[in-house]
């Protein structure tokens, strides 16, 4: 079994094996965590926010009909299609592909990649949490906010 060193590698493999255009990992907060494939045509920041909103709304719909969640969302367009699946409670995977005939392959590769990525995505170790100096961060950020927001006021 191939060992993936990080989620990006798993996404790259997914893009290669499924022949999709783009694959992304998006946090529940609507932030793009990892991207693979062609993203030049796409505003991934906006897409991440919208997909997260859509998925959260769909979760509420699932609860209304007695399901905990719908684990897969599929949006079929004329030329491009989107497959969205839950990796865990906080991360979802988005696959954009063109040939709808390949939906079976996309689903199969998505399931394989999901399992790999779910194993990779572990909580941040304590050591990395300490990397950020919170007091220093606050002071610098407050100064930066003053500089940026005072500027357009002349």
């Amino acid at each position: 079994m191939q060992v993936h060193h990080n989620a990006k590698e798993a996404l790259d493999k997914l893009v290669n094996d499924s022949e999709c255009i783009t694959a992304l990992l998006i946090s529940r907060e609507g932030v793009s965590i990892e991207e693979s494939g062609n993203t030049g045509y796409l505003n991934t920041t906006a897409l991440a926010a919208l997909i997260a909103g859509m998925f959260t709304a769909t979760r509420e719909v699932a609860r209304m009909v007695g399901e905990e969640h719908f684990s897969i969302l599929l949006q079929q367009g004329t030329n491009r299609h989107i497959h969205i699946s839950l990796i865990n409670e906080t991360v979802m995977m988005v696959i954009i592909f063109e040939d709808y005939q390949r939906i079976g392959k996309v689903r199969y590769e998505a399931k394989k990649a999901s399992e790999v990525i779910a194993n990779i995505m572990q909580p941040e170790p304590e050591a990395s949490v300490e990397k950020l100096n919170v007091a220093g961060f606050r002071e610098y950020a407050l100064n930066l906010i003053d500089r940026i927001f005072d500027k357009p006021q002349g």
Binding site: L50, G136, Y140, A141
Partner: peptide, 12 residues
């Protein structure tokens, strides 16, 4: 939705 980049702070 409007994202606004504040800049780099403490490497973040």
């Amino acid at each position: 939705f409007l994202p606004f980049d504040l800049g780099s702070i403490c490497g973040f």
